[in-house]
Nucleic acid binder design. Structure first.
Length: 469
RNA sequence: GUCCCCAUCGUCUAGAGGCCUAGGACACCAGCCUUUCACGUUGGUAACACGGGUUCGAAUCCCGUUGGGGACGCCA
């Protein structure tokens, strides 16, 4: 049987980094085994689900290169089928109509809490009820939990990550599968959908582990084969608490915004909670080849932005200059920075040097401004301070000197070295004023590269402007 | 509170009873490279939560303790 996995987010918000990793693992596992990877939008909570969230989730997955192999399934559209299965369970005697009102249930729960007893629903009075005696309130359908003496008194789930997990039947109670308004509950809908979609491996967050026991009630009552389960540990914030906005970026699209490359984010996520010896930088292709559920760790892991940045830098340096230039120019345009064809060319020409110095696209864009724009750069404080009267004098001299220089990077380097030697100066004493004049900063790519990329006219203009200013 | 899961450097991890004087990566510190900043490179600090077993031998197996996390809805 072909492997089929699914990622099943609920569209109540943006796709966060934990969900992205779940999607990645599902994708990788399916690819590894030549199967399909699907997307199911769990939108049965109409109050909280929004089309905007659906859009964002799909866009996020697309950005990460994790688009599903088939069109997404919307759980809300499958409600008739969920109800049908619920009725089937009713007919089989595996479920019954329960007429409790939400208020009554709340009262029962409160009473249990007051008595310091764990709340366990008891619906025995509804079982075998004469329909004529039934209350007029609309009933919910509840599935019968296994009784204490069934299955050896406990329910066992063989989890591919967590191992054999067992829970006493005493912990399970009759759960609602169809609400009194006829809509299915999540725990029920998930099972029906996974079954109908022929999902073979359910890979999802750890937070669903205990719910799995309840879902098994539906599988077992319907006589369906349970899929394989793999519950992966959650991702926490740097402080170990549940990941939230205050930890920084958590939405997948936030990372795009902040200049991370999708390949880097995926690689980082892959290494969070999963390991393969000492290898860290793993391409998508390699990941598909080596990904194995058995290698998923069982402990929760923490989000480490510093390490993500490092991964991003590695990927940035491996990305073709042309693509980076395009990304950078887009970001500059978004910042309202104008540039022409010449500027765009300069940015790309300088990209090999620029990208070695950046960890993300935003940083890269910032470092490329001086190359993109025409005319003298905006001076930062340190650069301005470096332009002493002596330095300006030096620049005037250099402008003159460079008029005759051959305009090619290696040649320029020689010229500058010769110049410094003749003047009895250290190269730094020549390079730093030039750097300030040309880039507006004291930190930039090698000055010969900057000169070469800028072109003689532009370079000399900037040098003179700094000398005058 | 009840149930479930987890536990190796600050962080991500390697480790399937002897290969462990516990390895790699990020971060941090120091050196090298160098026209600045990076990149690169060399080295360093730094961990098996604790207590009992089992065993000739335990980071690895078992049991407790402690500490984290998760689930307990007519939410998903």
């Amino acid at each position: 049987m072909s492997v089929r996995t699914r990622f099943a987010p609920s569209p109540t918000g943006y796709l966060h980094i934990g969900g992205a990793r779940t999607a990645l693992f599902n994708f990788l596992f399916a690819r590894r085994h030549g199967g399909q990877y699907l997307l199911r939008i769990e939108d049965t909570d109409r109050q909280r689900s929004t089309p905007e969230a659906v859009r964002q989730i799909i866009e996020s997955l697309d950005w990460l290169g994790l688009s599903p192999d088939e069109p997404p399934v919307f759980q809300s559209q499958r409600e008739p089928r969920h109800a049908e299965v619920a009725r089937e369970l009713l007919a089989k005697g595996s479920a019954y109509l329960a007429y409790d009102t939400p208020e009554e249930l709340a009262a029962m729960r409160a009473a249990a809490e007051a008595a310091k007893r764990p709340f366990k629903y008891d619906g025995s009075r509804w079982i075998g009820l004469d329909p004529a005696q039934a209350p007029s309130t609309p009933p919910a359908i509840r599935i019968k939990a296994p009784r204490l003496d069934e299955r050896g008194g406990e329910t066992v789930v063989k989890d591919l990550v967590q191992g054999e997990v067992r829970v006493g039947n005493a912990e399970l109670d009759d759960m609602i599968i169809l609400r009194s308004d006829g809509t299915p509950t999540y725990l029920h809908a998930v099972v029906v959908d996974d079954h109908d979609m022929a999902i073979t491996h359910v890979i999802r967050g750890d937070d669903h582990l205990t719910n799995t026991f309840r879902q098994c009630m539906v599988y077992d009552a319907m006589g369906w084969h349970r899929p394989h389960f793999a519950h992966i540990p959650l991702i926490h914030g740097a402080d170990g608490a549940k990941l939230s906005k205050r930890h920084g970026a958590v939405g997948a699209l936030d990372f795009r915004e902040q200049g991370f490359l999708p390949e880097a984010v995926c690689n980082y996520l892959l290494r969070l909670g999963w390991g393969h010896g000492d290898t860290e930088i793993i391409s998508r292709e390699a990941a598909i080849r080596i990904f194995d559920i058995a290698d998923i760790g069982r402990a929760a892991s923490r989000m480490d932005y510093a390490k993500l940045s490092h991964f991003n830098g590695v990927y940035l340096r491996a990305t073709p200059d042309e693509r980076l230039a395009r990304e950078v120019l887009e970001r500059l345009a978004k910042r309202g920075i104008s540039f022409g064809t010449r500027g765009a060319e300069r940015v790309e020409a300088l990209m090999p040097e620029l990208k070695a110095r950046a960890r993300d696209l935003e940083e890269l864009a910032g470092a490329a401004i001086f190359a993109a724009q025409e005319g003298p750069p905006v001076m930062d404080q340190k650069a301005a301070a470096a332009l002493t009267p002596e330095a300006k004098e030096r620049l005037r001299d250099l402008a003159q000197f460079l008029t005759d220089a051959p305009w090619e990077r290696a040649e320029l380097e020689h010229w500058l070295r010769d110049y410094a030697e003749v003047k009895g100066l250290k190269l730094g004493a020549v390079a730093q004023p030039l750097r300030a004049a040309l880039t507006g900063s004291l930190q930039s790519p090698p000055i010969d590269a900057v000169l070469a990329a800028l072109g003689r006219t532009e370079a000399v203009d900037r040098i003179l402007a700094a000398a005058e200013g």
